[in-house]
């Protein structure tokens, strides 16, 4: 049907009415103004006749072999001749295309390849993202534990215990917290002053 309705505009001298050609062209090959130009193969009469002839020959041979019982030497050829046997096996397995498609290509894509892509997604790409996030939190923790709390010390935990142990605010202050703060304060001021005086002097 499609072949029939898609007759070329003309074959040699015969031209066909418009209703018989380019019926579905816009579906198989969009021609809207958004599409780039596509060049078409031209209609080739010898080629068309040759392919029709090959098909006709095949049909003829089949007719002779099955309906007329002719072509006796070919009977059971595949059992006698190993080459022909191999040929038959290839033919029975449809040139192994199904095997190639289903088991080799599809199987590989569906199985190992897809799994590998998925593995890479979680273990490589996503791991980088998660790593960046965890890294930031870890840096925060490290700064808090090793810099802020070591040098500056957290009063949250310390207050409760040391105050109850010593029983008074004065003793608590003598335990060093304020001295630490003050020392740091002046040290930072002196350091900044030193650096800037040297840098600008």
């Amino acid at each position: 049907m499609v072949g029939f309705l898609n007759l070329p505009a003309e074959i040699g001298p015969i031209s066909f009415p418009e209703s018989l050609h380019t019926q579905f062209e816009q579906f198989v090959e969009p021609v809207g103004r958004y599409f780039p130009e596509i060049s078409h193969a031209s209609f080739n009469i010898p080629l068309a006749l040759f392919s029709l002839a090959v098909a006709g020959l095949g049909a003829g041979l089949t007719y002779l072999y099955y309906w007329k019982g002719g072509l006796a030497p070919l009977r059971n050829l595949s059992e006698r001749n190993s080459l022909a046997g191999l040929g038959k096996k290839v033919l029975v397995n449809k040139y192994y295309f199904d095997w190639l498609y289903t088991d080799v290509i599809t199987g590989f894509v569906k199985g190992p390849l897809a799994q590998a892509a998925n593995w890479a997604n979680t273990h490589v790409i996503d791991a980088v993202v998660n790593g960046a996030g965890k890294g930031a939190v870890a840096t925060g923790n490290w700064v808090y534990d090793n810099i802020d709390q070591e040098v500056v010390d957290g009063a949250v935990n310390a207050t409760g215990t040391s105050v109850s142990e010593t029983g008074g605010i004065l003793r608590y202050l003598q335990s060093g917290r304020i001295q630490q703060y003050t020392a740091l304060f002046f040290a930072a001021a002196a350091l900044l002053a030193g650096v800037f005086v040297l840098a600008t002097g």
Partner: peptide, 9 residues
């Protein structure tokens, strides 16, 4: 890549 990962879901 998206299609391959889809196959593994």
């Amino acid at each position: 890549y998206g299609a391959l990962v889809c196959l593994a879901q």
